[in-house]
Design a protein around this nucleic acid. Structure first.
Lengths: 195, 195
DNA sequence: CTCCATTCTGGACACGTGTCTGGACTGGTG
DNA sequence: CACCAGTCCAGACACGTGTCCAGAATGGAG
């Protein structure tokens, strides 16, 4: 067999072939989510579009929530790079928040779906929840020039702010670019007064 | 029949008898949620505990989400009073946020359940979502001494903050009294610099 | 080319959701 | 008292979820 390679968060040690199946599933999930929304989306629908039997989908994802959470994780990691050290602290934080907000922009249904999915209770989702939370905290702390395990009040505040932004985007209270701007603005407001 | 009286957000014009049935259902929902959590909770379970047939529950609530959203609405309205005009602006805002956070404190599963429920897509949930959002905005605007329809940036920021706090509470990142304190603190941080 | 482990499949399953019936109960009204 | 509108109920329904398993397909090693 081909040697196990990637360390995606789905299962430990996937072969290339398996990784490809997973990739097709998350991609199909993104499409279905886009076209039909989270509640109308069914796992069997996603499996069909990925050209895979439903049972196969369930060998990689323990639940619909897990599937969506994994999709978000992939988009997040690929869209929120390490902060640019050329910028100053405030700018860096603003950019991180903007990047996070923009992950779900353009995918009308994604923000709400992700929030719901990440609140799920199965162990795979819990695992991903930790990873997502940790990743964003890491990026924010890094932007502020702090260690990941900081207990700085401002980091926690910014985390709350982005969670709230996602929810409110999912509820349709604001548009996504609105949200991105507002988050960036909030970061500046907060940090310029409390450097 | 007894004259229609209350104008709960469930259905227009309930008789006293109906209102009592609805009250028992929401109360039962609170108990089941507390004991079994959101995902384990079933509508039939709640109906049974309320001493009512499942079909009856569905005549008052169009979905599990609607039921939970209604429960939250009732707790919210009864726990977050008009801000006290004796306090100053900053204190008033802090108190509102603390009150909102405390609505879900002590009910381990409620924060996550409510967030998920309010993100649902059926029309009754959408209606309740508007009411909840409007209510909190009204309280916050009032605390800041602004009209409800203000477009003040700080109100929107505080709204995002409380949404985020609820999510993170639901995810178990923080305890509830933590959250209440942190929200109150955040309000002060934001408002004292930008009065 | 054959073998065999890995991967995928198809279909059944138990259970929850939300909808829809016709019929039974209830309590004011004529 | 008999009526009847307003409620509630029991149970069937279509459909989605997540689980399971025997067997077919696949593809690298000998």
């Amino acid at each position: 067999m081909s040697s196990p390679s990637s360390h995606e968060s789905t299962r430990r040690r996937l072969t290339d072939q398996q990784a490809e199946t997973v990739r097709r599933l998350t991609e199909a999930a993104r499409e279905v989510l886009h076209e039909d929304g989270f509640e109308a989306m069914t796992v069997r629908m996603v499996a069909k579009r990925a050209g895979v039997a439903p049972a196969t989908a369930y060998t990689y994802f323990s639940s619909k929530n897990h599937l969506v959470a994994e999709l978000f994780w992939r988009m997040l990691v690929s869209s929120v790079p390490e902060p640019d050290h050329a910028l100053d602290i405030t700018e860096r934080a603003a950019v991180v928040l903007r990047d996070v907000a923009l992950v779900v922009a353009g995918e009308e249904q994604l923000a709400g779906a992700v929030t719901v999915a990440l609140l799920g209770s199965d162990p795979d989702v819990a695992h991903l929840r930790i990873r997502v939370g940790g990743f964003i905290r890491e990026r924010l702390a890094s932007a502020l020039g702090l260690p990941v395990d900081t207990d700085d009040e401002r980091v926690e505040l910014l985390e709350m702010l982005y969670s709230g932004a996602l929810v409110r985007a999912g509820m349709g209270y604001q548009t996504y670019s609105d949200i991105a701007d507002r988050l960036a603005g909030a970061a500046k407001l907060l940090l310029e007064e409390h450097p």
